[in-house]
Structure formats: structure tokens, C-alpha cells
Design a protein around this nucleic acid. Structure first.
Lengths: 204, 204, 204, 204
DNA sequence: AATGAATGAGTCTTCATTCAT
DNA sequence: GATGAATGAAGACTCATTCAT
């Protein structure tokens, strides 16, 4: 109960925090963590610099707040909401498709978070606890229950591989596309999924 | 001949540059680009701060110098030196194994380079020209000449996928391993390769 | 009305700016532009170094701000306020006397501005637009309307000559006086004016 | 004797010094004292930076060396060499014409010297002793012996005025010409001289 | 609670000067 | 004597954080 009931002032606090975090997403996405200034975040959030420090003790805390927001705003949660009844490989495809979009859409921010994780233990822990472990768990479950994966692949590794594949591919593609001509996103994702499921080897 | 013969002073310059770059690798790897100071690099390189700027006009140039070093020191070149006669999938495995080690060993630095690429065009271009395009080319060639890949997978995509898979997996594993127990690297890579070739789907 | 009414914060800004500019006058006058440090200006203005850069984006802007201050504080404007009814040569004398004092009082600063103008286009333009052109215009007008100058002297040249004479004489006198004994300023200016009007040639 | 006889090595020293000073003239003229680097002077003089400091203890000494060179190279001496028999006012005109050219030609350098004099006593003294006092003396003498100047003008002041007039006019003209169209130099100097001799007042 | 002016530690970078070769 | 690599002090400028209003 308590969880859901909030006093007015708590509400206000949350609103202010969100306001700041929304602004931070944009600024961090565009300029990275170090490249962003609290001044700019304040401006974009239409509050004063002082206010920011009322709600977040330090600049770093804003970034951590962002990670928490990611899950609260269920950017990742939806992964668990894919319907259950589906053909497993199709379900996985759906998951991955959504996942792909999410990563694509929040690519800049995620990159910043991923990067800064190296330097800030709190951030690393928050991100792992809030995001990674969930994602891995879901994927793992899906793979297992689909029953269609090879027996010699431990589900953990499969899940990690899957997540890594998506992250990495997205990164590389972003890089490549700036220099070469981009492929049709839909075709691209289909092919990637096909590769993941069937491998690149020719089967006769 | 002339190419290889260097004057004493050229040698010295190179040595100093290396000295600074080696230090920069450590510092950048540990603290990232923005988090590093030229002062600390100087200290670790056991030269004065002024000396750094004799050899690199700006801090950013150090990072670019690092990218060039990566190729010059043939961290990536070896890819082309894998013997030709091998069974193609085995050759690819060898390549990837080496590649994997390289990425693992320089993971922190690569992450920094990848990340900063967003903000520095020169770096982006240098890295793409020196590293990415080469890697992609080699992988593509290998995949093609192996003749064993599916016809419906464009080699470019396959190559990109491969590169991305390795980068992404490495990232995820680094994250995961900090929180869980690491797997045996050899087994891990074998499995990953297997996945890449054969996919995760069960074949009967 | 509105023009003159300033909000409190505008007032404060102006006060801070003035505070810094006053300090800058002293420091620049004493040590020149390059010889001055923002640190010293800050100290003399009793603000932190950071504050300086709140009000002036760069050190150079302080110098430009000084030029604007010169006119805003009507150090030069008064030239136009000399009464009109006077005997023209007397009016000019008054003008020049005031001018002389102003130049003398701000000699060091003016020298710095003059000098740095070589290297900073913005400064050159600001100074020319704000000061020189005005001065020249006024002097020219006065000379013309006095009707008492020779017809073969183009007013522009006469005006330039006048301005130059004062600047140059002030410079030389400053130099000379350090080594020899100074003359009575009033006598000096009278004589100079006389020379300018009547020339150095003996007329019988 | 000793004065004129120089050992070989003294000769060499002088040559090196000249070499450096010639370079310094160019660099200082273009970039001012603070804006110039010993590195650039060294480069232009085709010596190493270290060599510069063999011949001049400090950068400032180069500037002082330049002042001495000015007189030694008789940039100002010629003033005394104007023929004696001439009509006095014509002689003065010649002097001033030469003077004018000299100032014009070395304007940039002189400006730098003038400016830096404020901050360096040694320089100020050197310049006054070597240059100013000479010039003043000559002009004064000329004015006096011409017998054609007004009795109420003390020769010192007349001389100072003259020198100041030329310096100042040159400065102003340089400034003005950048913004407006330049006058024909010959006409300009004639007019200026005329003004100096006859004043700007109309004589009937 | 909110503001935004003020702070000052910390950054990259420059350059006169020194010194080993 | 000459070199030019190395030094390190010093400078302009930035920005997270604080605090008086």
C-alpha cells in the first residue's frame, strides 16, 4: 500500500526529479556524461542549477537516477510482457525486435551509461541489478522453454551471447552506416535473427 | 630498405611517442579519456607535461595516436597472417580466437576509443579507416572464400555481425563476470563460434 | 524612461562589470594586456577568477569592454558638449584641453588599447567605431565651422593631424618627462595649441 | 683602434647577433613582443633556440639589442647627415621627410618598442638615450639655427612637439587608413609640414 | 523551496630557459 | 660552439558545487 500512496510533496519531488532526468537523458545522450554540464541540464529542465543539486547530490547521481528510471519507466520491462502462447522462436523474435528498437532508440544514452559504468561502481551495480540481470533472465527463460535450442549450449551463455550480439551489432552498424550506405532496418533485423538461430553456415 | 632504416633521432622520437602512448593506454583504459589528465599521463610516462605536447599537439591527438598504434603494432594486422591452407571454418576460428584475445586485452582502451568516437570526428575517421574497414574486409573475404556460408547472407552483413558479436559479447561478459563466476575462456569462445556458425537452433 | 530604469539584477550586473573593469584599467595600465593576468584582475576587483568569466567571456572581451566604457562613461563624449557660442579657436582650445586631460589621465590604458588593436580586429573595430570616428568628426566639424582655417587644408587631414598631434605629443612628453623636468601642463598645452594654430614659423 | 679591430670570433659573434636581430625585427614587427616566440625567431634566423640564448640572456635582451641596433645601423643617425647649407626650413623638411619615411618603414617595430618601453625600464632608458635624445637634439638645433621660428616657442617644446606630431600622425593615419581611403603620401607629408610651419589658421 | 551568483580547484596548453650531447 | 629535447611554471578558462537571498 504504502508503496503506491505518495504525499503531495513526495509527488512534487518525483515530478521535479523526472523533469531533471528527462532533460539529462537528452543532454547526456547528445554530449555524453563528461561533455554535459549541469548548467545545460538545468536549462533544458527549466530549473535553476541550484535546484538540480537539491534533488541529486552530485552530477553522478543524476546518471544513476537515470538507470533507475530506465526500469521504472519500464523501458526494459516490456520484454517480460511479450505474450506467452506464441511459437517460442517467434516469441523470441518479437522480444528481440522490441529489444532492438529499444536499444536503437536509446542507443546514445545506453552508450553513455555503458561507458561510464567502467568508472563508477555504483552505476555498474545499479545497471546490472536493474537491467542486465533481468534481461538475461528473461532471454534465458525463453530460450529454455522454447525447447528448440541445442542441448549443448548452456542457457546462460546463450542469453549472454544474444544480448551481446545485439549490443555489439548495433554499435558496429551505427559506426558502419555513417561511412557506408545503411541497410533496410527490417531486413537487417530479420537476417540477424536468422543468423542467430541458424548460424552462418550453409545447411544442405 | 630506406623505409625500414630510421635515423637515430627518428628512433628517439618514436621511442618517446611510444613511451607516452604506453602511459596513455594505461591511464585512458583506467579512467577514460575525459577522466584522464595530461599531468597523469606525463607522470606515468616519466616525462614532463611539456614533453607530451612536443609529441602530440593536443590531448585528443594522443588518442588518435593510440588508434594508429593499434594498427602499426599490428594488433589487427595479424588477422591477415593466419595461414591460408586451413579448413576455412578452422581458419576463421583461429582468427577470431586471436581477435578475441586482442579485444579482451585491450578491452578498456577500445571501449574508450569507441565511446569518444561519438564526439570526435577525427577519431571516428581514423578508427574506421585504420581498423574497422580492415577487419571487416578480412572477415568478409574469409567468409566468402570458405564458401560454406549461406548464400542468402550478404558477406558485409555477416562480417559486421561477426565483429559486432565479438564486441558485444565481450562487453556483456565483462559486465556479467564481475557479478557472476567467469566461464573458461576457451570453452566460451568455442561455444560462441559454434553458435555463430550453426546458430542456436536445434538441428535434428 | 524605460531606458533609464534598470532592474535590480541589471544594476548588479553593471556594478560587477564596472568593478571588474575598474580593476582591469589599473592592471592593464600598469602591465599591459599580455602582461596582466586574469588572476590579478580578479584579486584587484575582489572577486574570484571564475566571476570574471561570468561577466566577460574572454580576457580580450575585458579589453573591449573597456573601450565601450570609455565612451559610455563619456570620456570622449564631452567633446560634443562644449558650448557652441564661443569664439571658434577658443572652443577648440577648450575641447583640446579637456581632451588633453583625458588622454593624460588614461594615457597608459589608451596606449595599451592602441597597441593591442594591431592584433585584435574586434578591438580595432570597436575603438575606431566608438572613439576615433567620433573624435575625428567633432574636430572636423569644429575646424570647418570656425571658418578660420586655411582653405587648402582638407578638414579630414586637419582633424587627423590634430588628433595625432595630441596623441603623439602626449607620448613623447611622457617619455621626456621621465628623463627631464616636466613643464607646467597649462603652459604646455597653450603653447601646443598656439603652434597648431599658428605654426612654428615666425610671422612678422 | 681597438674599437674598430675585431677578432675573428668577435666578428662571428656580431654576425650571429645580427642574424638573430634581423629575424627578431621581422617577428616582433609582425606579432609584437609578447606575441612572438623565441622559437619563431630562431627559425627565421636559421639558428637553434639554444643559440639565441647564447647571444642574448633573455628574450627581453633581444628587444634591447634591437634598440641599440637601430642607432648603430643609423636608422636615426641620418637625421644628422642632412646637408648644412640648405635653407633652414627646407632642411627641416628634408629631415622630417626622411624621418617620416623611417618611421613609416619601421612603424611596426617602433610601435612594439614604444609599447614595451612602459614595462621595461632598461628598454625605456636605452631608447631614450640612443634615439629620442638624439632626435630631439637635432631637431632643436635645426629649429634654432633656422632662426625662423617664433621667439616665444622654447626650442625644447618645439622639438618635442615636432617629434610627437610625427609619431602621433603616423599612428592615427595608420589607423584611419585601414578604415578609409589613404591619401597620397607625398601630398600628405607636404601638408603636414605646412601645417606645422604655418599652423592651421588662415593668414590673410 | 528555488534561484543563480560566486567560488576556486583543476584542465589543457604555451613558452622562455636549461642542459646533455 | 651549436643543437633541440626537456622542463615546469604559469596562464586562460571551465564547471560542479555552495550559499545568501
Amino acid at each position: 500500500m504504502r508503496r503506491k500512496k505518495k504525499t503531495k510533496s513526495e509527488d512534487l519531488i518525483d515530478r521535479r526529479k523526472s523533469q531533471i532526468l528527462e532533460a539529462a537523458i537528452k543532454v547526456f545522450s547528445e554530449k555524453g556524461f563528461e561533455g554535459s554540464t549541469t548548467k545545460e541540464i538545468a536549462k533544458k529542465a527549466r530549473v535553476s542549477e541550484g535546484t538540480i543539486f537539491r534533488y541529486f547530490k552530485t552530477k553522478k547521481e543524476i546518471l544513476i537516477g537515470l538507470v533507475n528510471m530506465l526500469t521504472e519507466k519500464s523501458m526494459f520491462k516490456f520484454i517480460q510482457e511479450v505474450e506467452d502462447g506464441l511459437d517460442p522462436s517467434q516469441a523470441l523474435k518479437n522480444i528481440l525486435k522490441l529489444h532492438y528498437n529499444m536499444i536503437t532508440q536509446n542507443y546514445q544514452l545506453l552508450k553513455t551509461i555503458f561507458y561510464e559504468m567502467q568508472f563508477h561502481k555504483e552505476l555498474r551495480e545499479a545497471f546490472y541489478k536493474e537491467v542486465v540481470s533481468n534481461v538475461l533472465e528473461v532471454i534465458k527463460k525463453r530460450i529454455q522453454e522454447s525447447g528448440s535450442t541445442r542441448d549443448d549450449v548452456p542457457p546462460e551463455l546463450a542469453a549472454q551471447t544474444l544480448l551481446g550480439i545485439f549490443l555489439g551489432i548495433t554499435m558496429v552498424q551505427t559506426m558502419v552506416e555513417e561511412n557506408e550506405n545503411p541497410l533496410d532496418p527490417d531486413k537487417k533485423i530479420s537476417l540477424m535473427l536468422d543468423i542467430i538461430f541458424n548460424g552462418i553456415k550453409k545447411h544442405d
